[in-house]
């Protein structure tokens, strides 16, 4: 590498003005910059430019050339679908999963042609019959959250598998925790 200077592309994301820094090969999100931080950052860039001029190096101009279409593609690559895990005998969505479900609802609103099946699963420590219904409630809890975030309800189907399809077949606390989940798949 001739130049070791990181190339920073600052771009604006949607009307929410969420700036992102993209490094070659890695996507990294900077958490919520306020107006003040942005102003500071611009001032810093200017200082660096001036320093570069003094050192006789070329000014690097940046321009956001990421189109909406590319942004969508990028979001597809960064598919947010991860499993949502539940406590024993519970179908209450834990607060820690709200950001994940928010990004899933954003994704679904962007990719309006993809329908999703939400699978509800349970660990083995329950009766067959009760767990089939508990799995349904877990799937429905996730569906309900996404619908409240504006996803078209007709695009979301729930299928409960009770304890019939564990992802981890062992009989340990760790396995049970992994099996109490809502899992996404495309229809």
């Amino acid at each position: 590498m001739k130049f070791f200077l990181p190339i920073l592309i600052i771009f604006l994301l949607l009307p929410s003005c969420k700036p992102k820094v993209i490094q070659p090969g890695i996507y990294r999100e900077i958490p919520k910059l306020g107006e003040k931080e942005i102003a500071e950052r611009e001032a810093k860039d200017e200082r660096e430019d001036r320093a570069n001029r003094i050192l006789g190096e070329a000014k690097i101009e940046t321009e956001n050339i990421l189109t909406n279409e590319m942004e969508r593609e990028r979001k597809v690559i960064e598919s947010p679908f991860k499993d949502i895990f539940f406590d024993f005998d519970s179908y209450l969505i834990k607060a820690e999963y709200y950001p994940l479900l928010d990004s899933i609802s954003e994704w679904l609103k962007l990719k309006s042609n993809r329908n999703v099946i939400i699978e509800g699963h349970c660990d083995e420590r329950g009766t067959h019959e009760y767990n089939l219904i508990l799995g349904q409630k877990r799937g429905d809890a996730v569906r309900d959250y996404l619908v409240r975030k504006g996803v078209d309800p007709t695009r979301l189907k729930v299928i409960s598998y009770g304890k019939e399809r564990p992802i981890d077949p062992r009989h340990t606390e760790e396995a049970w925790a992994k099996n109490r989940r809502a899992h996404f798949r495309f229809e």
């Binding site: 019959e129 089939l132 219904i133 349904q136 429905d140 309900d144 189907k157 729930v158 409960s160």
Partner: peptide
């Protein structure tokens, strides 16, 4: 119908009792 339907008890020789769960209700 949408959701899970399970039942295994009969009220009489031709009547099955089962549960249907979908959305908010069972």
């Amino acid at each position: 119908e949408e959701g899970v339907k399970v039942g295994k008890e009969w009220l009489d020789r031709k009547t099955l009792i089962y549960t249907h769960t979908s959305g908010r209700y069972s």
